[in-house]
Design a protein around this nucleic acid. Structure first.
Lengths: 336, 336
DNA sequence: CCGGGTATCCTAAACGTTTCCGGTATCATT
DNA sequence: AATGATACCGGAAACGTTTAGGATACCCGG
């Protein structure tokens, strides 16, 4: 900037004014300064700017795994908003490891990011509590912490679990296996609660041995089937934590010559784009991924702009998308 | 930091030494300072650090669309490396808009990111040339620029196009439709070249009207089928720019009662995870996505560490993955 | 007791901006 | 001609670290 100042004959101060579109500067000099800056190939050093002003116009985004289409859709919503409101994003994937998450939080704080969007692992909550304590602008996305005063946006998971299970029951299923994620995660917890409620409402006893818990990658779904259905467990319907697990499970079922949905109906969760293309097309619970990302950003922005002091909890509606994987052909009547 | 210094009785300098694990400090005082920093909840201000030292330990990643599984896998490789080598990532999705890409480059330069990993739109090359001119550490990932002295890592696209087309020919296809992306993109260009070469080698005349160009989302694949096959164009094989386009195309074919592969065989590109799960499972050209991200990062790192002065061009091998979507049942013999 | 080496710490400058405060011209008004 | 307002610009401090270059205390061998 000093170079530009020298070359233009104005002071550094005036150069700063020109570069930042400040008032109190003649159009002519501004134009001249900008032109010289251009010529010289000047690039402002944001780090230096940040030393005086506080705003970084960066927000930190911490998610489990952006190669999971669910997260990548949410991320897309976040990015859309960030572009719109002129923020940048530092992205950290935690690979569902709490250690990575904690580290990410502290590194992002060092960067003085303006705010944080976190899809937490939820194995630990200490670092989140620390953020609250510091009053660091943060929005939890896709998860819910009990008894914690922090902004959150997540889906109506209990209802999602209920819808999926209810649908399977409607299709004539009675022995419904739940392939769930670890229960410290609020979605696992709440979907399971919905599952339980739906069973109860239908007068079907809730059997904990029909809840299989594992990680939530396709291979986990595959393995889960090997450990349950393939070992002779009587199952006529499966409700999977997400579509990806369902894909793995479907593969395992096909590999072992079970017919979907004739032998076993299956329902996923998230409604990722690919669910309509697999075979058979997967019934699933649709959640508003893009909106979730976008609204999360909005909530954070409101907080940053001081428009809101109270913590806010936003719950997005879900919707059951019925496809072939669960459409029981009643006439074949091989269910209990 | 001044607070920590005052409270501990040491100078700011010593606090800095403790925080950065520098030598010339007694273990005892280091421990004491770290403890006080902990108590006080001190978080270092990276922006200030950066003012003196140059390294930001951030690299900027610019890609077309991280919700595309291809890019998200590459991104995963990049992230994996970044975690390993202790860098952070600022991610910018361009949504395939040059405008966004140019803006991203300049913003990231303001942030003084240590280097750039770009999957460029390739509609324009001015901003890339500017980077070269500034000698800004940059690696182009997944694309190739003709006559440009810049580090690049990309796949052997010509061979990929050749393999896919050759395979379709081997299956008895003679009227092979290419659903390609815009030709300013090097992969489009090169895959098409492979397609041409394979046809030529088989003695099949190359017919430009069999190359359909559009954007590369599923809906583009869907529409492409409506505009070609559904209008009566004789086609017995389709080679798609990527798997996603293939998914859209397959949907359109199914909706219009074409059988895959009996009526029309189809081959995709990228080998995204979902290709094995759609129906019928999609034959595709596999490219080493994770490795591409990882190696791109490595190349950048080498450049950053000054280990390498000359520009480097790395081409990764591809592999044809044969699945059901292209397995022609010769006996049905309804091909030309 | 002294020179020199080592371990540990400190002072002050420097990084590249932004902000606070004030200064000079210019112009209209009395 | 003096006054006040306005438009434009500059000087210098400040932001929170790192780094360069000592300074001090202690220990060693001679």
């Amino acid at each position: 900037m000093a170079d530009v100042a020298k070359k233009s004959g104005f002071s550094i101060n005036t150069v700063s004014r020109a570069l930042n579109n400040k008032p109190d500067i003649r159009e002519e000099t501004k134009a001249r300064i900008l032109q010289i800056a251009q010529e010289i190939g000047f690039v402002k050093n944001r780090s230096a700017s940040l030393l005086r002003s506080v705003e970084t116009r960066i927000i930190g985004v911490i998610m489990a795994d952006s190669s999971n289409p669910f997260y990548s859709e949410v991320l897309k919503g976040i990015e859309w908003a960030s572009r719109k409101f002129d923020y940048q994003i530092i992205l950290v994937n935690t690979e569902r490891a709490t250690k990575n998450e904690i580290r990410a939080v502290s590194l992002l704080m060092e960067r003085r990011v303006d705010g944080l969007l976190i899809g937490p692992v939820q194995e630990s909550r200490k670092h989140i509590e620390d953020l609250i304590h510091r009053n660091y602008p943060t929005v939890i996305v896709g998860r819910h912490f009990d008894q914690m005063e922090i902004d959150e946006i997540y889906s109506d998971e209990i209802n999602g679990g209920k819808l999926a299970t209810q649908h399977l029951i409607d299709q004539g299923c009675r022995k419904i296996l739940l392939l769930n994620g670890y229960s410290y995660k609020s979605p696992s917890h709440m979907r399971q609660e919905g599952y339980r409620q739906a069973l109860e409402a239908a007068g079907i006893p809730y059997d904990p041995s029909y809840v299989h818990i594992s990680d939530i990658l396709p291979e986990d779904g595959y393995r889960a089937i090997l450990h349950t259905v393939c070992k002779g467990m009587p199952v006529d319907g499966i409700f999977c934590y997400n579509d990806i697990v369902a894909f793995g499970a479907m593969q395992a079922l096909k590999d072992n010559h079970y017919r979907i949905p004739e032998d076993i109906a299956i329902v996923g969760y998230d409604d990722i784009q690919y669910s309509g293309w697999v075979y058979p097309p997967l019934t699933t619970v649709s959640i508003q991924k893009h909106r979730m990302g976008f609204e999360a950003f909005r909530m954070l922005l409101n907080r940053l702009q001081g428009k809101r002091k109270k913590t806010q909890r936003k719950i997005l509606p879900v919707e059951l998308i019925v496809r072939k994987s669960s459409l029981h052909l009643q006439k074949e009547g091989q269910r209990v």
